[in-house]
Simulated scan of single mutants.
Amino acid sequence: MELNLKGKRVLITGASQGIGEGLALAFAREGCDLRIVARSAEKLLAVAERVKAEYGVRADILAIDMALPGAVPQVAEFGDGIDILVNNAGSIPGGNLWDVDESQWRAGWELKVFGYINLTRMLYPMMKARGSGVILNNIGNGGENFDFNYIAGTTGNAALMAFTRALGGQSLADGVRVIGVNPGPVDTDRINKVLKGRAERVLGDASRFTELLEAYPLGRAATVEEIAELFVFLASSKSAYTSGTIVTVDGGITSRRSIG
């Protein structure tokens, strides 16, 4: 399928590893020029060199901690003129209301929740003035499955879902599409770390974390590619009527509800 993305300029935050790295590779395969952001210059350089070598696309990097004061305006300046924004940077700590103290809660939200909101606020007007653009928010299915033991994350994700729907419900009038994606568990270092911690608590042995995968659909987490390719499609002209909605990709976990 021709997605008509060749030459599009894409800004991806949190692009040095995991889903972010997968997003960079997926957009590069379609011939997009990349601007990738993360804290680690070394990891970003590795991603940039890979996409240049494999796909021949341009990949500019900005190594910055987006949680620091003044960082988001620098990222917005780096993203001037882009066609597609992918908000992906952020990790909100797990735990219940008493496990996650105020400073941890605020730090997690500063990067993911306010990071998404503020970068969108700065780049949306440029897209509006041009009459075209796509903003994709990588959120997470915790926003639909309220979790006592992931209270800061489930609340933050729910807020980003509301933000995406509220903005995307009107944005097509400006020629801009705003869409959210809610992945469930994805096969990354982060999910493996989470599962190892859970296995240690529940099974008494972190090395048994693979046993916890048996409860997931198909007995596994999603692959990074399965998530990244959806973002690419949603960014393309083949999805031109999609805005103000959330697409959940979790193998049916969110839909496993019953009245019995």
Results as ranks from 00 to 15, higher is better:
124 Y>R: 14
10 V>K: 06
133 G>Y: 07
64 I>M: 05
23 L>M: 05
191 I>D: 05
79 G>C: 09
206 A>K: 12
170 Q>V: 15
106 R>S: 11
192 N>W: 12
192 N>M: 13
233 F>T: 03
45 L>G: 14
15 A>I: 11
230 L>K: 08
250 D>H: 09
25 L>H: 07
31 G>T: 03
117 I>L: 12
119 L>E: 00
99 D>Y: 10
84 I>T: 05
85 L>K: 08
138 N>V: 07
24 A>V: 04
22 G>I: 02
172 L>F: 02
62 L>D: 09
178 V>T: 00
101 D>V: 04
107 A>S: 15
104 Q>K: 14
183 P>W: 08
202 V>I: 13
160 L>I: 00
24 A>D: 01
60 D>W: 00
21 E>P: 02
48 A>N: 04
129 A>N: 13
47 V>K: 01
189 D>G: 13
136 L>H: 05
251 G>N: 10
174 D>I: 06
22 G>K: 01
251 G>P: 12
115 G>I: 10
140 G>T: 06
131 G>D: 05
132 S>Y: 13
61 I>E: 01
121 R>P: 04
48 A>Q: 06
159 A>S: 12
214 E>S: 15
187 D>F: 07
127 M>E: 10
126 M>Q: 15
197 G>T: 10
153 G>P: 06
171 S>V: 12
74 Q>H: 07
59 A>I: 01
105 W>R: 11
42 E>L: 09
161 M>I: 11
162 A>V: 12
22 G>N: 01
32 C>A: 11
87 N>A: 13
248 T>Y: 12
179 I>T: 01
171 S>K: 13
213 L>Y: 15
229 E>G: 00
91 S>D: 12
127 M>D: 10
51 V>K: 02
129 A>I: 06
244 G>L: 11
234 L>T: 06
54 E>P: 08
71 A>N: 00
69 P>N: 06
5 L>F: 08
31 G>P: 04
43 K>R: 14
